[in-house]
């Protein structure tokens, strides 16, 4: 398993989760956890995904998701989970 964190921030609109999940499933990336809230009209989502079986390299997956996000006016980041672990766990 190779965990990555996908974060999505932007103005709320219909179909954000559906679109991101579709992109992920097309690349065989499994979603392990999702949490999502609306903060002052802003959609904020955090997903933990497993990219171990992804059909494309990490860099490409990241690029695709980020491009897909910017087309909808969303700020999407994809990062290996280890960074959050390193910074917030002792």
């Amino acid at each position: 398993m190779m965990k990555a964190v996908v974060t999505v921030v932007g103005r709320d609109q219909v179909g954000i989760i559906a679109a991101v999940c579709t992109q992920l499933s097309q690349r065989n990336v499994n979603v392990l956890d999702i949490s999502q809230t609306i903060l002052q009209e802003y959609f904020t989502m955090m997903m933990v995904v497993d990219v171990a079986q992804a059909t494309v390299p990490f860099a490409q997956l990241k690029e695709e998701l980020e491009e897909g996000g910017s087309a909808r006016g969303l700020d999407i980041h994809v990062q290996r989970e280890d960074i959050f672990h390193a910074m917030h766990r002792i």
């Binding site: 974060t7 904020t44 989970e81 917030h88």
Partner: peptide
């Protein structure tokens, strides 16, 4: 599991 605040804190 990661705390959403921590994650957005790092991104920020």
């Amino acid at each position: 599991m990661h705390n959403q605040i921590d994650i957005f804190n790092t991104l920020d």
